[in-house]
Design a protein around this nucleic acid. Sequence first.
RNA 1: GCGCCUGUAGCUCAAGGGAUAGAGCAUCGGCCUUCUAAGCCGAGGGUUGCAGGUUCGAAUCCUGCCAGGCGCGCCA
Length: 582
Amino acid sequence: MKSNVQAMLSKALDTLVSKGVLPSLPTEESIQVERTRDPGHGDFASNCAMTLCKSAGMPPRDLAQQIVDALPGSHLVQEVTIAGPGFINFRFSATAWQAEIRRVLEEGPRYGTSQLGLGKQVLVEFVSANPTGPLHVGHGRHAAYGASLANLLDAVGFNVRREYYVNDAGRQMQILGLSVWLRYLELQGVKLAFPENAYRGDYVLDISRQLQEQHGDALVRDVSGLPSVAEAEDKESALSALIAAARDLLGEDNFRSAQDLALNSILDDIRDDLSEFGVVYDRWYSEHSLAENGAIDRALQKLQANNHTYVKGGATWFRASDLGDEKDRVVIRENGQTTYFASDIAYHLDKRERGFDLLLDVLGADHHGYVARVRAGLEAMGEPPASLEVKLVQFVSLFRAGKKEQMSTRSGQFVTLRQLRDEVGNDAARLIYVMRSNDQHLDFDLELAKTQSADNPVYYIQYAHARVASVARQLQEKGYRWDPEAGLSALHRLDNEHEAALMKTVTRYPETVELAAVNRAPHMLVHYLRELANDFHTYYNAHQFIVTDQPLRDARLSLVNSARQVIANGLGLLGVSAPDNM
RNA sequence: GCGCCUGUAGCUCAAGGGAUAGAGCAUCGGCCUUCUAAGCCGAGGGUUGCAGGUUCGAAUCCUGCCAGGCGCGCCA
């Protein structure tokens, strides 16, 4: 609907340019069209007369009049007025809204999709949590946000792939392997002091039991000579020393097998968890594989070839500060090992080489410092820096009955995503997670989400959907049948304020999906759906749908079914179910 | 110290530079012999952290303060 107004304005402005009223063709941005907030201002408004009045050299209202005079005729538009400082307000005819309701029913699940993205290849990478333990509630927000965003981009015509970057290399994995082995030793009756900075969660013990099943007592060693972490001043260094000693004692293959068992077990769990949450990936990309297939070397060679590296203190540095980062970054350590950052730029280069135009990373707010360096890395390797877009997701604070819960993976004291899903359900979790802007801290109160009251917007929206389904059941009981075509032909019978309001809100859906996609803001869709549900509930309370007057009945059923369709489509993008019964 | 995010109703948050800043919760008052009351209607509640600036117009953009969160490793 909005695009109709844009097309008309664009044509009128063309005319004014050819008449010499306007100096040059205005940019797309200066032809803004929005829905009005106040129905007294019509349905759509444009501020173009005010933004263009300077270049035309006349007062905004005079220019507005010229634009209005140049507008092509349209059967959709009932009235065009000039108001306030120079707004051009469009009021649509009743038939325009009715035609759009017909479109909703005809397009069904496809209603709201568009070709805005022109098939551009987008890789959305999200969650990518270290596979060192189960996902917790913070990861859940990333999952819900990333999945909804990917769905939105898909809907507006981008070619979207979803990817999880598996950090299966490096120190954290070694700490995990060590933790599993130490717990295994405890299971074997070996007395030891479990390091406080190793992984202490129950899931480690579960994996240790698996290790026991596979290896029996074959991995038991005399650990009396192992270095102690508890008494050390620098606990992290002591832990590294302990890992090194354990690998010596156990042998590389055995240590590796403990580590791999842990990795695979946790990764399977994460995969199941996300899949149950409705979050499915096209690919799980292993960090380890980057080293194995030489991708890291290739990326580093590219940096070197472009003269973006130097050696200092035995380490190889990337000159990131030349490209907007605050300081230079190590890519190869003094000990010859490449850094996590080296893997990361190799991974991003690989994404580009796989043909993705846009690399969309969803990261935790604590990773913001690393955006500049990855972008610098891409630029140094000859890729456009703008090809990387990062959306930072702020933290989730979990509350239980008003009390804040602490979360830490290593200490094992945290609420997992699975626990959360069990408590509040997938639907409530998915919706509450994306209800707020990603830039906003999220307070997630478990008790509140569980109450199944009106506090919880998911029920409010789903209830609207279920009510339409319930009307359909009642209809059948009363021996009636909804004739969609008859209903669409009788839409002119829908003339009360509630019907007009619902119709207009329904037709706002495609614009909302585009806005939410372009702004990377699923929460805009949530707010819209709440509003739509509100308009429906109001209508439901004010009027009976199942009336004896058949054309009116069919028309009302067509309208509420268009609302049902849009709610189903919108909830679908958010990964929330649209139940027929509640 | 530097960087990113945030500051809007009692609480949690919306608001593409637009017209009189809106929702939910909470509070108060109404609506079930009628398609699901997980609903609807109404009322009260605001110096958009503070001070300047940009312009026809600022919660929104810029500058400076104040407050909160997070980050600033040859960890990942």
